[in-house]
């Protein structure tokens, strides 16, 4: 479904991605893991059209996303849940969700409001509350719900567990598991390697702008070097 080939991104002289290639098939959940500054967010932002690559291609069902504006990318159904939630603090919860529908533009809605409320009941309770006054976990749920309102065919999740308490992370990931069971295609960026490998079918490990390892989640979880480098550090 998504095919990234030899992607290179430079920020004013600094090379953030040095020829990254990866693919995500329809209905697959793929994790992209790696240390801070590896270029994970750069990659999702390049897919979303926020960052223009210096070289390489990002093909989504044959269309080159790199040539499209960010709003056009999300209207085509490739929707990002950005790092740090980025909800609209001065809009209430319902308005945030309604805003997510902007990405539909002619495409039929998926489950709409009821489905999001079903997935995250707390959002229904707080629908009239300003998004800025929600807790971090609720904001993360809102950010995911907002993206779902645009009926994504491909969901990009950037660090959904960042800064959340373990019990809230469990709630968020339970919802993601539900999405996965419905066949949603997801590219998941995650620093918490255990969480990521637990949810994903396959994973890529990105380090210093390059893919250093890839495989199914089981293979990677069993790989001694992964355990030493990433799981060892991340174990709680």
């Amino acid at each position: 479904m998504l095919e990234v080939s030899d992607l290179q991104v430079r920020y004013s002289g600094i090379q953030a991605l040095r020829g990254v290639s990866l693919n995500v098939g329809a209905g697959e959940v793929v994790a992209l893991i790696g240390p801070n500054g590896a270029g994970k967010s750069t990659l999702v932002n390049a897919v979303s059209g926020l960052v223009k690559p210096a070289a390489g291609r990002i093909l989504m069902e044959g269309r080159d996303l790199a040539a499209m504006d960010p709003w056009a990318v999300s209207k085509s159904g490739v929707i990002q849940v950005p790092e740090g939630r980025q909800v609209f603090p001065q809009l209430n919860v319902l308005e945030n969700l309604q805003l997510g529908e902007t990405a539909l533009q002619g495409r039929p809605p998926a489950g709409g409001l009821e489905d999001v409320y079903d997935l995250f009941p707390v959002l229904k309770e707080r629908s009239a509350q300003l998004a800025g006054s929600l807790s971090g976990g609720q904001q993360q749920m809102l950010a995911i719900g907002r993206a779902l309102m645009g009926a994504p065919r491909f969901l990009l999740l950037d660090e959904p567990s960042l800064g959340l308490a373990p019990v809230v992370i469990a709630q968020v990931f339970a919802a993601l598991r539900k999405l996965k069971s419905r066949g949603m295609t997801i590219l998941l960026i995650e620093q918490n390697v255990r969480l990521a490998l637990d949810l994903a079918d396959r994973a890529y490990i990105l380090d210093q702008g390059k893919i250093v390892l890839s495989g199914t989640s089981q293979e990677l979880a069993a790989d001694a070097s992964v355990v030493a480098h990433y799981l060892g550090v991340m174990s709680e």
């Binding site: 709003w71 950005p82 603090p89 990405a103």
Partner: peptide, 20 residues
């Protein structure tokens, strides 16, 4: 108007939601 307020709040996130 909702879109105007969204862009006011966070331009980048509004682009990710399909707003030009």
């Amino acid at each position: 108007g909702r879109r105007v307020r969204a862009v006011t709040d966070n331009e980048r996130a509004s682009m990710l939601m399909g707003i030009n």
